[in-house]
Deep mutational scan, measured.
Amino acid sequence: CHSECLGNCSQPDDPTKCVACRNFYLDGRCVETCPPPYYHFQDWRCVNFSFCQDLHHKCKNSRRQGCHQYVIHNNKCIPECPSGYTMNSSNLLCTPCLGPCPKVCHLLEGEKTIDSVTSAQELRGCTVINGSLIINIRGGNNLAAELEANLGLIEEISGYLKIRRSYALVSLSFFRKLRLIRGETLEIGNYSFYALDNQNLRQLWDWSKHNLTITQGKLFFHYNPKLCLSEIHKMEEVSGTKGRQERNDIALKTNGDQASCENELLKFSYIRTSFDKILLRWEPYWPPDFRDLLGFMLFYKEAPYQNVTEFDGQDACGSNSWTVVDIDPPLRSNDPKSQNHPGWLMRGLKPWTQYAIFVKTLVTFSDERRTYGAKSDIIYVQTDATNPSVPLDPISVSNSSSQIILKWKPPSDPNGNITHYLVFWERQAEDSELFELDYCLKGLKLPSRTWSPPFESEDSQKHNQSEYEDSAGECCSCPKTDSQILKELEESSFRKTFEDYLHNVVFVPRKT
C-alpha cells in the first residue's frame, strides 16, 4: 500500500485506493498535508475557505447554543480562536489581540433580562453583547459592586439597553466600559436606550469621564423622579442622539420631579488639616426662599486615587461607600458681607490618608415646582503625618564578641513616609551569675543571650482551647457569634421535631 494509506488498500502504491488515510483526505486521495488554498479540518480532512465560511455563517444565523462559528488559524479551520487571539470578521482569520481579548457573548432569543446578581454573573467577562440587555433589578445585597464585577467589562451592545423598574439602582456607572450601543435591534418605538419607572436612579454616568455613542435609535425617559433633566440632556449631547427624540420621548413632568437638581456650584473657602482632623468651610448658599434650606450634607471617604465619582458603590438597598454628615444651616444675616460661612470639623480620621470630599445642599421643593440647590466639586484632601507606631517583631542576635545583629519589621501604621529608623542602645553591667558559677561542674549549661522565638506554653494553649472559665478566673470563653447562636437554635429545633416524629412513629394507638 501507499505510504499515506492506513489499515489496508485495494490497489498497491495508489493513494486513492486506501481504506483510511494516515494524515489527511483531499478529493478522494490521501495526502501528507493540505496544500494551499485548503485548510486542515478536524485533523483528517482538507477543506477550502468557502466550506469553513459556510459553517461560520450557519452557526451565526441559527443562534443555536453550542454550535461553533468556525475560524481560520495556522492553516486550520477550527471552532474558535485560541487564547490571546480574536477573529477578523472580513476573512475569519485569528489575529493577536492588542491588550485583553474581546469576548463576544451571543444571547438566546436576542435579549437577556438581568433581574438578579445570579443572572448578571452569566455575563461575567463579556466585552461584546450580541443582542439586547434588559435591566430589571428590584433589590439585593452589595448590588453596585456585584454588577460592576460582572457587567463592568461590557464595551458594546449590538441591540438596545433597557432599564425598567430597577428600584435598587442609583447610577449606571457599573457599566464602566460601555462605549457603544449599535441599535441594530430596537425596542418598540425605535428606541435604543429605554429608561422607565426607576424610582431611585439619580445618575446615568459621570459624563466628564465617560463617552457613549448610540449609532441608531432614540432615547426614552419616563417616570424617573430623581433623575434630573440636565442629566438626560447631557446624554443626548454626548451620545449623538440630540435631535432624534420626539416631543413625548422625554417626559418633562415625570423626570426629576422629586430630585434636588443642583444648578449652582458650592466653593470651599477654608481648608485646614491635622493628622486626624480636617476643618472645612464653604461659601454660604440661600435659595430664593431661605426657609427652603434644610441644611447641608457632607460626604467623605478614603480615596487612594483621584478618580472618585459621587455615586460609586451606591445602591438604593443601603450600600453606600460614603460617610454622610448632616449639618444645620448657619444663622442668616441681613448683611451679605457678614454672612457666616458654614463648615464642619471632621474628626477621627487616619493620618497621612487622602480623602475625597464634597458637600451639597438639602432643600425642600418650592411652590413653583422649581428645584434649587448647590453642590461642590469633589475635592481631595490629605491629612498630615504623625509619629508612626512601633516597629514590629524586633530580633537581636550576637554573632561574635563585638557585634549584635538587630532586625525588625516595619510598623503596622507608618502614618507617613518613613525615611529612617533611630536605634538606641545602652551598655549593661555583666551578670554576677557568670562569676559565681563553678565551671568545672559536669552538665553545666552556660547562660545564653542568643534570641529564641517566643512560644506559647501548654497552660496558655489549654486556656485558649477551654470553653469555660478556669477556677483562677484568668480566662473566659469568647462570646458566641450570631451565626453560632442561630445554628444552635436550628439544631435544637431539629432535635425537638425529630423526637416528636419518633414518638408518633414508635407509639401507635392500640386498636379498641
Results as ranks from 00 to 15, higher is better:
360 K>R: 05
293 L>K: 01
219 L>I: 09
131 G>D: 00
238 V>Q: 11
341 H>S: 13
343 G>L: 08
305 Y>A: 09
180 L>D: 11
110 G>C: 07
138 R>C: 00
114 I>R: 01
260 S>E: 02
122 E>L: 14
268 F>G: 01
346 M>E: 08
281 R>L: 12
369 R>T: 05
338 S>D: 15
201 L>N: 01
109 E>G: 14
153 L>D: 14
249 D>V: 12
337 K>W: 10
113 T>R: 04
260 S>N: 02
268 F>N: 02
142 N>M: 08
128 V>C: 07
177 K>N: 15
179 R>K: 12
184 E>V: 08
252 L>G: 13
241 T>I: 12
306 Q>P: 15
384 D>L: 09
317 C>T: 05
235 M>W: 06
309 T>P: 13
322 W>K: 00
180 L>P: 02
156 E>A: 05
227 L>K: 02
393 D>I: 15
409 K>L: 07
163 I>K: 03
222 H>I: 06
167 Y>A: 11
264 E>H: 05
359 V>W: 00
359 V>R: 00
407 K>R: 14
132 S>D: 03
362 L>V: 07
166 S>D: 07
181 I>M: 04
278 I>P: 01
375 K>V: 01
301 K>I: 04
177 K>P: 02
254 T>I: 12
123 L>N: 01
400 S>M: 10
346 M>S: 10
314 Q>Y: 04
289 D>W: 00
387 N>Y: 13
168 A>V: 05
396 S>M: 06
148 E>C: 08
249 D>N: 07
252 L>D: 10
249 D>S: 06
282 W>M: 03
185 T>M: 07
199 Q>T: 05
360 K>I: 00
319 S>G: 12
104 V>I: 00
242 K>P: 10
307 N>H: 11
334 N>R: 14
149 A>V: 06
372 Y>R: 05
359 V>L: 07
239 S>T: 13
392 L>R: 13
143 L>S: 09
269 S>D: 14
190 N>I: 15
189 G>L: 15
235 M>F: 09
252 L>N: 08
355 Y>T: 00
119 S>D: 06
295 G>M: 13
305 Y>Q: 01
260 S>W: 05
229 L>R: 12
349 L>F: 05
150 N>A: 02
182 R>H: 13
255 N>M: 02
235 M>A: 08
143 L>A: 00
339 Q>C: 14
338 S>K: 13
342 P>L: 06
315 D>T: 13
385 A>F: 04
174 F>K: 01
313 G>I: 07
351 P>G: 07
209 K>P: 13
256 G>R: 02
285 Y>N: 01
131 G>H: 01
377 D>W: 14
214 I>K: 03
381 V>H: 09
150 N>T: 04
195 A>L: 11
252 L>M: 08
258 Q>P: 01
371 T>N: 10
362 L>P: 00
133 L>V: 11
233 H>Q: 05
